[in-house]
Amino acid sequence: MKAIGLIETRGLTAAIEALDSMAKAANVSLVDLKRVGSGLVTVIIEGDVAAVAAAVEVGKTAHTMTGGELVSANVIPRPHSELRKIL
């Protein structure tokens, strides 16, 4: 079962920079990029647990290259099947 990683930033440019860095750092795939509102953007990735954890760690610092703000980051190792329905 794949893990899910989430990075939420304030600003689209910071989210794209984080996604680019995460994709280059580990074997992960983009699930979705959600614009939440008030400038908040959430990037959702998936892959095996180690790859997602490594990618999220890289993404947590990558947003700083654009001057963006990291709001939150999380890794869900074995998401429940019901969670996938909302993603």
Score class of each variant (00 low, 15 high):
residue 9 T to P: 00
residue 29 S to W: 15
residue 25 A to L: 08
residue 87 L to T: 09
residue 15 A to T: 01
residue 48 D to Y: 05
residue 44 I to D: 11
residue 22 M to F: 09
residue 18 A to L: 11
residue 65 M to S: 11
residue 74 N to W: 08
residue 38 S to P: 07
residue 37 G to Q: 00
residue 68 G to S: 10
residue 16 I to R: 07
residue 54 A to Y: 11
residue 79 P to Q: 02
residue 31 V to Y: 04
residue 36 V to N: 08
residue 36 V to T: 13
residue 48 D to P: 01
residue 48 D to M: 03
residue 49 V to N: 01
residue 50 A to W: 04
residue 19 L to R: 11
residue 45 I to Y: 13
residue 66 T to H: 05
residue 25 A to W: 09
residue 46 E to D: 15
residue 49 V to P: 01
residue 30 L to M: 09
residue 45 I to V: 14
residue 71 V to I: 07
residue 77 P to C: 02
residue 55 A to P: 07
residue 64 T to C: 15
residue 77 P to D: 02
residue 21 S to N: 11
residue 57 E to T: 06
residue 56 V to G: 14
residue 5 G to M: 08
residue 79 P to H: 06
residue 86 I to P: 05
residue 48 D to V: 04
residue 30 L to Q: 07
residue 70 L to T: 06
residue 49 V to Y: 02
residue 22 M to Q: 08
residue 64 T to S: 14
residue 47 G to Y: 09
residue 50 A to C: 01
residue 67 G to Q: 00
residue 24 K to H: 05
residue 32 D to I: 12
residue 8 E to F: 03
residue 32 D to W: 14
residue 32 D to G: 15
residue 25 A to I: 05
residue 74 N to V: 11
residue 47 G to T: 05
residue 39 G to D: 03
residue 39 G to C: 10
residue 68 G to V: 01
residue 84 R to I: 12
residue 11 G to K: 02
residue 51 A to G: 08
residue 57 E to Y: 05
residue 14 A to M: 05
residue 37 G to E: 00
residue 71 V to C: 03
residue 29 S to H: 15
residue 65 M to H: 11
residue 27 N to G: 14
residue 26 A to D: 05
residue 30 L to F: 08
residue 11 G to S: 03
residue 51 A to P: 09
residue 51 A to Q: 04
residue 25 A to N: 06
residue 31 V to H: 04
residue 39 G to I: 03
residue 68 G to T: 03
residue 18 A to P: 09
residue 57 E to I: 07
residue 20 D to V: 08
residue 52 V to I: 02
residue 28 V to P: 13
residue 7 I to M: 12
residue 22 M to P: 08
residue 58 V to H: 01
residue 34 K to L: 13
residue 74 N to L: 10
residue 58 V to K: 03
residue 49 V to T: 01
residue 58 V to Q: 02
residue 42 T to R: 06
residue 3 A to C: 04
residue 33 L to A: 12
residue 68 G to I: 00
residue 11 G to W: 01
residue 1 M to R: 10
residue 84 R to Y: 09
residue 26 A to P: 06
residue 17 E to W: 00
residue 4 I to W: 00
residue 37 G to K: 00
residue 63 H to S: 13
residue 42 T to N: 05
residue 25 A to Q: 14
residue 85 K to Y: 01
residue 36 V to I: 14
residue 53 A to F: 13
residue 25 A to R: 10
residue 12 L to C: 13
residue 9 T to F: 00
residue 71 V to P: 01
residue 3 A to R: 02
residue 12 L to H: 14
residue 45 I to A: 12
